[in-house]
Design a binder for these strands. Sequence first.
RNA 1: GUGGCUGUAGCUCAGCUUGGUUAGAGCGCCUGACUGUGGCUCAGGAGGUCGGGGGUUCAAGUCCCCUCAGCCACCCCA
Length: 419
Amino acid sequence: MARPSAPRGLPDVVPPASEHLEEAEALARSLFDRYGYRRIEPPVMEYTEVFQRAAGDSSEVVLDKQMYTFTDRSDRSLTLRPEGTAGVVRAFIENDLGKKLPQPVRLFTIGPMFRYERPQKGRDRQFEQIDVECIGSASPVIDAEQLVLASEFFERLGLEVQLNLNSMGDLADREKYWPVLREALSDKIEDMCDDCHVRLEKNPLRVFDCKVPECRKILRAGDIPPISEFLGEESRAHYEALQEMLETLGIAWKDAPHLVRGFDYYTRTVFEFDIPSLGGRPTVCAGGRYDGLVEQLGGAPTPAIGFAIGVTPTLIAMEEKEAAKPWQPELFVVWTEGVASVALATATDLRRAGLRVAMSDEAKSFRSQLRSAERLGARTVVIVGADEVARRVAKIKDMMSGDEREVALDGLVKELRTR
RNA sequence: GUGGCUGUAGCUCAGCUUGGUUAGAGCGCCUGACUGUGGCUCAGGAGGUCGGGGGUUCAAGUCCCCUCAGCCACCCCA
């Protein structure tokens, strides 16, 4: 290797993508603030045990392969976080946030996550996620609040999303459902793929995620009852209350009776937001209620719900829609030989006044500088040439109309700021 | 992790089958025509470790091996 390259799957985020990232994350911060979600920043790595305990034994074999796990110098096993929830919940417990903060506790974190997977477009080994959690309430009001919050996020980015919604019931509901599912599939299992045989043994609900056409056909045939028909009284009431609130809020959703999660800790509400135009992997946000996780990680039994926004696919969708704009100056300062200091001082004054200002680094020809202004998309050009400086004025040129007018240098900032 | 496709200029690609003088195009970029005024046009220019390493050969972008990276499907999607 003649030149060093970034490790496989670890992306450089460069402009304009980095600006899209900033736009999305800045929006998230301001939006979450209005909903009362407060920032928490757990470390990017945890003792491996944290993630293992969170995952339970539902799919440990596969997960271990996809985690960035290593041994530190003190021979402890650490893992770069593959997702946000486990670390947030661990921090919630460790910092006694269940006692220190008003309940329920609303938290969000934004940052990189790591999964050792084969990279593809929109699937890197390091990727940004926006993680939102509300810990300490079992009320469907919180479920609805989170769905509104996620909806508003995408709406404000100008992205059209589809919400897929389901309820998986609680653990007791699922234990009743498993034998029903196994029974319903018993005479069809022979036609299903090897993976589904394993799934039916270890994690039966995951058969609904199978992509093999044969399996899909069988599962969609209609004689397989979905889990939503096996919800207990409380789970059913919870789900109905949520749906009623969504209707009142005008949030559209699609019933997804086969939508499931791979982890044991998920209970009741599960959801995904898709952007169909993304094709193969359309999901930009996924989440659900996890009433069992806090206890599973050693805390007091505490209900909770959360979701994660995949920033990478969101950025791809923004770029496809051209919903994101690259950096663009409002003003471009044109100058000539000998007045560099005045030109730079003028640009600096305008920048201090809050304007986005670009300026050539050399006293190039007017033609060249105006061409730059045009290409950068500046709407207004400020001309500070030797002639103007001698008379203590600047020319202001409107790039749309081509009109020019002169303004005293002293009053320039005031003039342009109030436009 | 499995299977497959692709790496040539900033971008999109041609050239590879049938090895042979200075490796091309379009777009973009820079400069000039217009010596202080953008978009259009015209002219000129810069820019290339042909992903990297090794091999075969008088000669490799072209053939062979290895390797790295990207992409697609699977897997997985906490």
